[in-house]
Design a protein around this nucleic acid. Structure first.
Lengths: 329, 329
DNA sequence: TTGTAAGCGTTATCAC
DNA sequence: GTGATAACGCTTACAA
């Protein structure tokens, strides 16, 4: 008489209900079974507080109901919101989220992927900075914001279109000479297309522009001299600035004001991301808004898609423009 | 000859290395084994790309290496930072994080706990709003910011001390009539002690004060009339305000400025949390800073503690004061 | 030291 | 429709 106070098993339920093991399994999996049996089993299960052991189940079925999410950090609000959305969407589909934050460390990224494999996750959604990531063909993988190969589906906002839209909006709102400020990691990813889109629009429409390109290592402050030297007689040489993130835009805005320029009168500024200040839920600046919820949904959709033969290599989700007080609209 | 292209098992490794199954297991678990055997096994494992199946392992050992983290949302930066820290700390200890966001929905909270149990997690760290949460005595549980019973360890910042510190700082910096503004959920949690600490300090030191208490449902804007009516002849009746969160402080600051008051000259403001604006990594306001990293570490420490007989019922971690431009220091 | 075999809690395949 | 029984991949006595 071993008092199984701890964890009741199917065997216990079967004994309690006076039925066979297999019958209990069937009840738990909603496989048709005699009505009276079903009731007996359900009551026994409730009485014992039975919970299926998903490890035993997973071992048998190779179906764990877990998806790994690998992301640089949750300290940045964009990643926070994205993670929140992915977690919710997965939950709705009956999946759990195994979270790993990597701090963009390449070794960590590979470690996490290895762990995910060990834990027999049913898929991996990752936002990484590692060009040599160890992607396993066996396990479904969806990348966010980073295109690897045609075999690895990538989900991103329409960065190219967003860059175009930013240029177009600035022009429509009266800016005549445009500046694009870009900071980021040296690793090439989808977000770099913001720059390309911006340039293409300016060229196509004959609008004069300039692009300044910095690396994360240079720091946000490295743009200061650029801004200083572009001011002649108290007026800026460029009257429309597109920053590749809202964060950069916020920093640039502060600098512009310090330099005595008024926004949006002297110069208009558009950022990218569409983040909201959590203290008042208002935009930091006018911005190209990434459709975060849709990105999360799409990533999960693709990941969980039954038919893995023809996966979209790159899915670009439409962005939108939202005024935020730093443009004249 | 079944081509096991997919997932090599220990058996495969054993065959490849020409040793017995048990030997492979020993090598994988760093149990002493003949040097030549070890090498043979390791090479075979590498060649086959073998990864232990932690489901099979977990089934056997009841050791899954997974801890569940249940949190309301990742849209709020405090939770984002907390989650990030918990995930990092767990990783360092060799544990993975199973993440669940609940949106503070009580049913969801219970669902998540049930899932965690099914997945045989080795512990649960939760920040919940459900007073009737289904806590299972069998599985280690640590609560953050919410005290249930002596049997459920709770980790929080020293909210009471923080409230005192806020009052004290305001007084030291010259404020003579203090106001505490508090908004939150109707559910009672540790953070409510901020108010108690504030009051006790004022009473003990004979400093006149008032407390205004709102519920989330009232909305942040509900404080507006309070502020309006406290202004006499352009000067505020209260010259020191302690808000129970940085978010509230940010809103209040905006209102004060709209009402023509200058901060910190006319009135000084202190918040609680110690969040940094991600755009410039600067504080939103002067604030009582929660030791988020330590909270994460402590929660994990307690959760993973071997000796579960004498657990601390409530662990309050020391807070600190950080000036942020809304006080005269 | 190394190999063997008995489970861990499920599911799935069979006879009944 | 129900109930034994053999896996699933691994750990761990225990035997060799």
């Amino acid at each position: 008489m071993k008092a199984k106070s701890s964890n009741p098993t199917m065997k216990d339920v079967a004994r309690e209900a006076g039925v066979a093991l297999g019958t209990v399994s069937k009840v738990m999996n909603n496989i048709p079974v005699g009505e009276d049996y079903r009731i007996r089993v359900e009551e026994a299960a409730k009485k014992l507080g039975y919970q299926v052991n998903s490890y035993a189940k997973g071992l048998k079925t190779n179906h764990t109901g877990i998806v790994a999410l690998i992301i640089p950090t949750l300290k940045h609000p964009f990643f926070g919101v994205l993670t929140d959305n992915v977690c919710q969407v997965l939950m709705k589909r009956g999946f759990r989220t195994l979270l790993a934050t990597t701090e963009s460390d390449m070794e960590m990224e590979n470690n996490c992927i290895r762990m995910a494999r060990q834990h027999k996750v049913e898929g991996i959604i990752a936002l990484t900075y590692n060009p040599d990531i160890e992607i396993d063909e066996e396990i479904p993988f969806v990348s966010i914001d980073r295109f690897y190969t045609n075999r690895v589906p990538c989900v991103a906002s329409d960065n190219y279109g967003g860059g175009q839209l930013a240029a177009q909006k600035l022009y429509e709102l009266g800016a005549r000479k445009l500046l694009h400020l870009r900071i980021g990691s040296p690793v090439i990813g989808e977000p770099d297309k913001r720059e390309a889109g911006f340039e293409s629009w300016c060229q196509l429409n004959g609008v004069p522009y300039r692009v300044v390109h910095k690396n994360d290592a240079d720091g946000l402050m490295s743009f200061r001299p650029i801004l200083e030297e572009m001011i002649r007689d108290g007026k800026p040489e460029y009257d429309g600035i597109f920053c590749n993130t809202d964060q950069l835009a916020a920093v640039i805005l502060k600098m512009l004001r310090q330099l005595g320029l008024s926004v949006p009168e002297d110069v208009q500024v558009i950022g990218y991301d569409g983040l909201l200040d959590f203290t008042d839920y208002k935009p930091y600046c006018s911005s190209i808004v990434q459709p975060v919820e849709r990105m999360a949904e799409t990533a999960v959709d693709i990941l969980l898609n039954e038919d893995r033969s023809k996966l979209p290599a790159l899915t670009c989700l439409p962005v939108s423009y939202r005024p935020g007080g730093t443009t004249r609209d």
